[in-house]
Design a protein around this nucleic acid. Structure first.
Lengths: 343, 343
DNA sequence: GCACGCCAGGACAGCGCTACCTTAGTGACT
DNA sequence: AGTCACTAAGGTAGCGCTGTCCTGGCGTGC
């Protein structure tokens, strides 16, 4: 019953500590710490000794202790609006691929296209004292914005571009993408062009805006042919809206869809109901999902650099976290029009 | 230059601490800690006072300090083999939905169907002293297995069932699902049944095994009609394998696909090449992705309870983390045959 | 040859929280 | 009335690491 000093204290984790590594290497704990963090002021032989000792003991740092002592974590928070289509998965994977090898932990938050949910996630994750913030777009609540600003945590915005002073962003011009879509369809001789968008996030709206502008320029704009719904984008919804639009406006001869899944749904309903694509209606999608090129007919789409955006954003974040200024804070990763059979 | 005691120490986070909350509430720090953790031994009025003080100061716990002091984190690690199809997204979302409100942080690892990668992720994430492990299936490297066992971290296995002693698992019988698929196609009068599977993960193999058994039972098994490839499942691959199988075995009259995306690809190629589905060939998919019911023809599939598995697994995990035994460690969540036009 | 600056390495303290033990106060039972 | 169990609250110490001094030894320049 008498608890002696040698009792195994249950509060410890049982794993080797930096102290033990240091003892084994014959150096002080702080030197071991510096050696393992790759701080250059440690002699090469000493650092090597420490590394060997750490390997021997199978030592892994305790991230909690490190975070507490240094008042900063090694985690980076990524907030995306959705995981239900593959768009953001590619981006997330790329971010992981860049940050994980550098020892950063990636915390993913899905805010389901909801400003409130984003704000909540932000508030929650701020507790972890993240080293960086990777956010999607610029559309968010005022308090989210304030939280980001006052936190002083470096932040990179993905998917959209914004020339605002001091913002780091990696994306492409959604507006130009919409324009490109319109010009392509017009160049195919189409004159009664529609736009079908769902979700109504900032980017969908911007694409619609670009599309509209190009149509207005060409004198072809007809507000009746703009179908927008806040419902989440899906194959089923695409088919539904497609049939709906055709029922009310049978003269439509081209449709730009704000998302490939919508366009795929339209192609499927067209096949089901015998509507000829592209003869009767040209169809253009957006994002170029992997399955789009296998549709019947093969879906034309605008390919977006999702993987590249994630990679570049993560690289910018590394620069920022190292305390450096990013040379080129606004990175336009472009997009590519993939012309296939449907247009 | 003289640094007085009142200098803002840069090592602090600048955020309010539990001490300040306690002072404001007029209690000791430890009482504040207990109150905020909902430990019952704190008087209700005191707890309320603490809660008010915390809200006033906008206090959020420092997870690093908490993890360090208690030698355990609040994070749960989830390892999934893929994020590139929607399968695991539903499960992940459900897990999040259960664990986040309880204050747990969910760390997601994607091991891309690679045992080595899973082992690496496991090793890495173990450093965070996770409170729980949610893993996919039972197929993993010996060292992964050892790591899990020696870590003593509670673990729930998802997607498959296993009656092994002491394992907590939530899933459904992949074997029975394969059998159900075969019986359904046979009941449709088909006699030359093929199986097309990709990825060759344990679950795909088990489904194939169930399918094979049912065919053998019916005296219809033909090993030539089993197409297996380690390539990752995708719509494009499905179309490719479908055409390949038909070229070598034109007499096939039904195909069970190990995954809906494969089946979708087959339907699309069938449409492209004029093969009549289901007249010439009945097609059955697996997983019932949201888009499957909109295919032309509408794809029959086996609906898997992905969301329910995630939810239930997370609930089991909560029980385990609370230190309790799970009443029913093996949870069969079943599956549902969705008969549509393609079969 | 001496003062100076510089650098590798170490001592020390503390990050914010919670486990453990102790104490004061309450009621129940003999 | 006195003892005992029990509960609520606090004191103390320390989780494992790193920031901030500080020391001692070396090289450099006049």
């Amino acid at each position: 019953m008498t608890s002696s000093k040698n009792d195994k204290n249950t509060r410890t984790t049982g794993r080797p500590t930096l102290n033990e590594v240091a003892r084994l290497a014959g150096v002080s704990p702080i030197t071991a710490s510096r050696a393992l963090r790759g701080i250059s002021s440690v002699a090469i032989e000493l650092a090597e000794k420490v590394r060997v000792a750490a390997a021997d003991l199978n030592y892994v740092v305790n991230p909690a202790a490190r975070a507490l002592a240094s008042a900063q974590s090694h985690s980076v928070v990524v907030l995306v609006p959705s995981l239900s289509n593959l768009l953001f998965i590619d981006t997330l994977e790329a971010i992981h691929a860049v940050l994980r090898p550098k020892g950063f932990e990636v915390l993913i938050g899905n805010f389901h296209y909801s400003r409130d949910e984003e704000e909540n996630l932000l508030r929650n994750y701020m507790a972890y004292q993240p080293r960086g913030l990777l956010l999607t777009g610029f559309d968010r609540s005022e308090s989210s914005r304030r939280m980001i600003e006052t936190s002083n945590v470096p932040c990179v915005y993905m998917m959209e571009l914004d020339a605002a002073e001091g913002l780091n962003c990696v994306g492409f011009s959604q507006l130009k993408a919409g324009e490109t879509a319109a010009r392509h369809l017009i160049s195919r001789g189409r004159r009664r062009l529609a736009y079908i968008g769902a979700q109504l996030d900032q980017r969908t709206l911007l694409r619609g805006e670009g599309y509209r502008r190009a149509l207005q320029e060409a004198g072809l704009y007809n507000p009746d042919l703009e179908v927008l719904t806040p419902r989440p984008s899906s194959v089923g919804l695409g088919g539904e809206l497609f049939l709906q639009l055709l029922a009310s406006h049978p003269q439509v001869d081209a449709i730009f869809f704000g998302n490939d899944d919508l366009a795929q749904g339209a192609l499927l309903e067209a096949a089901r109901t015998g509507i000829k694509i592209p003869e009767q209606i040209a169809v253009l999608g957006f994002n170029d999902l992997p399955s789009s090129e296998f549709m019947v007919p093969r879906l034309s789409s605008i390919r977006t650099p999702r993987e590249a955006i994630g990679r570049r954003a993560a690289e910018q974040m590394l620069t920022l976290m190292a305390g450096n200024k990013v040379a080129n804070p606004v990175q336009d990763m472009g997009f590519e029009l993939m012309v296939r059979e449907s247009s």
